[in-house]
């Protein structure tokens, strides 16, 4: 595989990786919202609390990889209700499957956040986002044309086993760089947020620093 062939791959990989990002971002959003809602239900009446606990238990104990297959095979791709046509693409199924573990994580986080009144930190969310971003590659097994799937297809079409190592190495490098960039960005963002909240506290209570001394 020469350098030109390698460069040709970049745009298609970029396009495919945007799907990984889309799946991960949407799964985080859906999962966080569900987690927040379930954490609130925890403080409701006994029956609803029990229901919320059961849902969380289910989400925490079923692997997202299994859920991915479950949704892919059970949920119809197209259906109509009362003349309204619905279409659930494999991407949407991947989002829902990956939102399940996020729900478990988010619910736990919000419960702890409420119980201990801890400051809201971006770092654990970032770490979880990276985990979900990496897990988004599993969507390739249900036919989502994301980065892993594109790489596999590229090798299969080429009919050349020599392509395997360079292409998968490129995918691996892609993810390593992406997680490093994300981690560094969020670390910086977290620092800025912490600094701002410290400044706000000092403005609100100028004697705080002296008292603590």
């Amino acid at each position: 595989m020469n350098q030109i062939e390698f460069l040709i791959l970049i745009p298609s990989f970029l396009k495919a990786f945007s799907l990984n990002l889309l799946i991960a971002v949407c799964a985080m959003l859906v999962g966080s919202l569900c987690g927040f809602y379930l954490a609130n239900l925890h403080q409701s009446s006994r029956g609803i609390k029990y229901l919320a606990k059961s849902i969380i238990l289910m989400f925490r104990n079923i692997p997202s990889f299994v859920l991915l297959f479950y949704l892919a095979l059970i949920i119809p791709t197209q259906f109509s209700i009362a003349n309204i046509h619905f279409e659930i693409s494999p991407i949407a199924k991947a989002i829902f499957a990956l939102a399940a573990p996020v729900t478990g994580f988010a619910c736990g986080y919000f419960l702890e956040f409420k119980a201990h009144k801890k400051p809201f930190l971006l770092a654990p969310w970032n770490q979880y986002f990276i985990v979900i971003l990496m897990a988004s590659t599993t969507a390739s097994v249900i036919g989502v044309k994301e980065l892993m799937s594109t790489a596999n297809a590229r090798i299969a079409i080429s009919g050349d086993s020599q392509m395997v190592i360079p292409i998968y190495s490129l995918v691996a490098l892609w993810f390593i760089s992406c997680s490093l960039i994300l981690s560094a960005t969020i670390k910086r963002l977290d620092k800025v947020i912490n600094k701002r909240s410290q400044c706000k506290e000092q403005v609100a209570n100028p004697h705080l620093d002296q008292e603590s001394k």
Binding site: M134, S140, V164, I165, Y168, A172, F175, L180
Partner: peptide, 16 residues
């Protein structure tokens, strides 16, 4: 840990 396990699985099994 920054590489998705499924990528590593394919890289090692089908590649290295």
């Amino acid at each position: 840990r920054s590489i998705p396990p499924i990528v590593l699985l394919y890289l090692l099994y089908f590649g290295l």
